Amino acid sequence: MDSNLISEQLLSTTSVVWGVIFYIVYAVTMWRVFSKAGYPGILALIPIVNWIFLVKIAGMTGWAALLYLIPIVNVIFAIVVAIKEGRNFGKGGVFSFFLLFLFPYIGHLIIGFGSAEYRKV
């Protein structure tokens, strides 16, 4: 067998394993965030439904989640949702922008497993 083919297969397998590990950690993290906000954690695992409830956690109507489907608007809307979500968990705008919008894996991990408590503002 060609050594390049073996290297590519190994890299591909490694990437898939890391992807699955990150997905599982993020799913558990989002489950905790949803539970802290008073919603069933299982909703965090359902695609598109998790957008609706994340928008509700941010304090807006679930219908606003449709804005995620509009190009360019979705980026601005995601920033607004991140900032409002952070505010409802007692976090500031800088934390919300950088750790809930740009690096949500880290921000939601801090909110889900940290001492932040949900209080709808």
Rank of each mutant, 00 (worst) to 15 (best):
Y118T: 09
S3F: 14
T13D: 00
S15M: 13
F113K: 01
G59K: 03
I111R: 01
F97N: 03
Y68H: 08
L5C: 04
Y68A: 04
G92A: 10
L69V: 14
I6L: 15
E85N: 14
V73L: 12
V28E: 04
F95P: 04
G19I: 03
P40C: 06
I110C: 03
S35Q: 14
G19P: 09
G112N: 09
F101D: 06
V33R: 03
E8R: 13
A58M: 04
V20F: 13
V16Y: 14
V33A: 05
E85P: 03
M1E: 00
G86I: 03
T29Y: 11
Y68Q: 02
V28G: 09
V81T: 11
W51N: 11
F22D: 03
V81W: 08
I24F: 13
P71R: 12
L66S: 05
G92H: 01
S115N: 13
I21L: 14
L100Y: 00
L45C: 06
N88A: 05
S12K: 13
K84V: 11
L5N: 12
S7D: 12
M30Y: 10
I42Q: 05
G41I: 06
N4W: 12
V73A: 11
F113T: 01
T13C: 02
I42G: 06
G93I: 15
I46P: 09
K36R: 02
L10S: 13
N4V: 11
Y39F: 15
T14M: 12
F89Q: 07
A37F: 00
I48G: 01
G93V: 15
I46G: 05
L67F: 13
N4M: 13
F89L: 02
L11H: 07
F113Y: 14
K84Q: 14
A44S: 15
I70S: 10
L10F: 14
F97S: 00
I52C: 04
L66A: 11
I57P: 00
V33I: 10
F98R: 03
V49Q: 11
F34R: 00
